[in-house]
Nucleic acid binder design. Structure first.
Lengths: 137, 137
DNA sequence: TTAAACCCTATAGATTTAGTAGATTAATAA
DNA sequence: TTATTAATCTACTAAATCTATAGGGTTTAA
């Protein structure tokens, strides 16, 4: 299951990407527009900021704004930061690899084989989709 | 993330599918061979039985055995029963559809669009993969 | 009598999804 | 310059749910 964190994060990013100008937008504005719990959104935007997607301005007239161009933001990166591994199982993960304790031989493992295929196809979609692609719905 | 339930379920199914004859296999045998907690495996095999993949024989000399041929067991069915929806989000699920409360228009939703693509590609893999395909690793 | 599946319940731990309270920073009005 | 206000930031807490087992008793068949 996709976490609400990721869902809300993507929604917030597309909200910002759809705007004409790049003046800061308050958390509360996005929160109301997208029906997202304000404090939860706050923490999500913070992690997006820490990972270089967004920047913020404090104080009166402050808010968040996109740092990169929408077509430069790949979904692989967004997913990995908000959701974690693309793979459904650590033993096929490229960025978060971990060996299964119970599995003596990965090459003989049916689950490994199946999940590697799923990872490949998901990865291809996330790589070929940018924030810009998601904006024109 | 793939649950251990699904992982163990698939491993147990492949274990049975790889056998020459169809004599019942005890839970404990599979449990030891695949390093799966016995009681957990018990409940997994039970749900696989209730859903028509396995049959069991009680008492001495009893155990579990495959009901269908491995090439008749699609991964879509196994995944839906053990893991639940193929989709990462209910609003794109074919079998477990649910509307998002926060989302006024699915067609304008970036998350919906992205996750629909992911579902399609995953579904294609699970449909085209049977238990027989996973056995020859 | 024994060995196996079956059934029911409980539970520790992790994760998710927030909520609460206050600190910090910056623009603006007095 | 000072006070006020509006915004982000930080830290702690908490409820709810899910996961992965463990335990113990029941039923069935060789």
């Amino acid at each position: 299951m996709l976490s609400k964190k990721t869902k809300y994060g993507i929604k917030a990013l597309t909200y910002l990407a759809r705007l004409e100008d790049k003046t800061p937008v308050q958390i509360a504005t996005i929160s109301k527009s997208e029906n997202i719990s304000l404090k939860f959104l706050e923490s999500i935007l913070l992690t997006l900021k820490k990972n270089g997607f967004l920047a913020s301005k404090k104080g009166k007239g402050g808010g968040y704004y996109l740092l990169k161009e929408p077509n430069e933001i790949q979904m692989t990166d967004v997913m990995r930061i908000l959701e974690g591994p693309i793979s459904m199982i650590p033993c096929v993960s490229l960025n978060f690899y971990e060996k299964c304790e119970d599995c003596p031989d990965e090459n003989a493992c049916a689950v490994h084989k199946l999940m590697a295929e799923v990872r490949d196809s998901s990865l291809q979609i996330f790589r070929n989709t940018t924030l810009a692609d998601l904006c024109n719905c």
